[in-house]
């Protein structure tokens, strides 16, 4: 297919409509929306190296406005987008992952994606040590210092609320109960932008006559 070409030849390839239709079929997006996402993908995947693939540095640049720097959460997001685990994000992987962030995507998918995001070591549980590691990471990212006592108090209250069976790890059922009681925890799993996706919003210089019909 055309996403195999380097750079992907989505614009000219004769299989273009087939590929777009396939992705629209596999996700919540319409063909017009997949087309709009491709414009966004092109910008992201060419911001450092123009090779039609999103490198970790390019995701870092988009989210942090600088190309380098370690960030635990960005690593996890990148890893979940990178379905084939080959260190780059292809267009189809990009569309699949963003589909979960659509306002109309099933809540179950968002809950599951967030669980996998926070299950750092991919053991099937969000362990207390992992949560502590993530809290330390966000405090460092924000330049905030907390005493270990306060940090432990936050951990205690979080696990008192989330860890129903008190085994110091949160399983998927406990996670579901927890986020359904605290829906604001899933706020960043929805991108309102995706609801109104068109070439005009993603790429303002595009005019409506470039759109293809659904």
């Amino acid at each position: 297919g055309c996403f195999e070409c380097r750079p992907p030849c989505l614009q000219n390839c004769e299989n273009r409509f087939e590929e777009i239709a396939r992705l629209a079929n596999e996700t919540i997006f319409t063909v017009n929306e997949v087309e709009a996402l491709y414009e966004l993908f092109k910008k992201l995947s060419s911001s450092i190296i123009d090779d039609g693939l999103i490198q970790k540095e390019e995701l870092h640049l988009a989210l942090f406005k600088t190309p380098s720097g370690e960030n635990l959460f960005l690593d996890r997001v990148f890893d979940l987008f990178d379905e084939k685990k080959n260190g780059v994000i292809k267009f189809d992987e990009f569309v699949h992952a963003l589909s979960v962030f659509h306002p109309n995507a099933p809540m179950e998918e968002k809950i599951d994606f967030a669980f996998r995001l926070y299950d750092l070591r991919q053991t099937g549980f969000i362990e207390r040590e992992e949560v502590k590691q993530m809290v330390i990471a966000i405090l460092m990212e924000s330049g905030i210092t907390l005493s270990d006592d306060l940090l432990e108090a936050i951990m205690d209250s979080t696990f008192a609320d989330a860890d129903a069976d008190k085994d110091d790890r949160i399983n998927i059922e406990e996670w579901k109960d927890f986020v359904l009681r605290n829906p604001n925890l899933l706020k960043n799993m929805t991108l309102p932008y995706l609801k109104d996706l068109s070439l005009a919003t993603v790429f303002p210089s595009f005019t409506s006559n470039t759109r293809i019909e659904d």
């Binding site: 966004l40 910008k43 992201l44 911001s47 988009a62 989210l63 942090f64 960030n71 635990l72 959460f73 960005l74 690593d75 996890r76 997001v77 963003l98 962030f101 995001l117 926070y118 949560v131 502590k132 993530m134 809290v135 990471a137 966000i138 405090l139 990212e141 924000s142 306060l150 108090a153 936050i154 951990m155 209250s157 979080t158 609320d161 989330a162 605290n182 604001n184 925890l185 706020k187 960043n188 991108l191 309102p192 932008y193 919003t201 993603v202």
Partner: peptide, 25 residues
């Protein structure tokens, strides 16, 4: 006690998890 603070609420504030910035390039 004001420590009803939730660890995941803090974590979800990371820029690394805020994908809306993807649309801001």
């Amino acid at each position: 006690q004001p420590t009803a603070m939730n660890a995941f609420e803090l974590i979800s504030m990371s820029k690394g998890l805020n994908l809306s910035n993807l649309f801001d390039i």
